[in-house]
Amino acid sequence: MPINETLSQYSDYSYTTAAAIYVLALMFALIEQGFGAKGRLAAERSKQKARELVGAGGPPAYGTPVEAPREVGRPERIGRMGAALLVLAALLHLAAIVLRGLAVHRAPWGNLYEYGMATTFIAVVTWIVIMRKFPVRHLTGFLLLPVVILMFVNGTMLYTTAAPVQPALQSYWLIIHVSAAIIGSGVFLVPGVASVLYLFRAAHDDNPAKFAKFGPKLPAADVLDRIAYRTTIFAFPIFTFGVLCGAVWAEAAWGRFWGWDPKETVAFVAWVVYAAYLHSRATAGWRGKRAAIINIVGFSATIFNMFFVNLVTSGLHSYAGG
């Protein structure tokens, strides 16, 4: 079936608009983060909760939000508008993906551009879910910053016109393997960001003079730690499943299930790093900061795999070259 140029065009418009609205949402979120009481409130609330529980030897339970009935200031209103914009942009983002799929009559993740488009979408969706469970709306900007950068690079340097895929990619494994990789990598963005913020917060907790303005507006360290942990343990089995499916596919397409192709290698490295992250949380002396750093390393490996390995090295993975 021929490519539907019109739908592909609409997909591009939708993508660009989504990116533009993310930028707007990012600015709104920064206003809330910078001027709002929410950051401070959230931080205090979680700190207090944590203190209450120190004696009990367990971190706090969520699900019974203790939202203080304060009057809502202008920054909070802007923050809420930012969140609404975020959802709107995510819908456009989804539309861009669906339209691309309809235009090319296949799963819309057959090249690097489409992969980047779907991965950033998953990151945003994960964040929207997290926002409903943790008091972190004011941190939206820190997530959107990498998302917007990735979307920009993706939409300019890596843009690929809509086309069918070559024979090696014509397999139902494309749908399974790549979607698992997309979900894994997309979700991993969130613990990456949470771990970076954790390091700021922990540095501030150790020495209040450090990040004196920024630190107190972040949620308590253990809240950030928990966000990172929960998203990681969600994404890790999915990522593992993706690697496993990749091996099964490689057995059918390339003659061996594992051959240390650059992409396979870096996926393996990222997987081992995340396994190290999970172990570090069970090892005395490695919890907290070191775990956060490991998580950031894991996410760096994921990004490295997405860009560097695809663009610079030449492996069998035929996304190479965009």
Binding site: P262, F268, V269, V273, A275, A276, V309
Partner: peptide, 12 residues
């Protein structure tokens, strides 16, 4: 685990 990840990198 770390060493393994590090050692695998040159291969890529």
């Amino acid at each position: 685990l770390f060493l393994l990840a590090l050692a695998a990198m040159p291969g890529a």
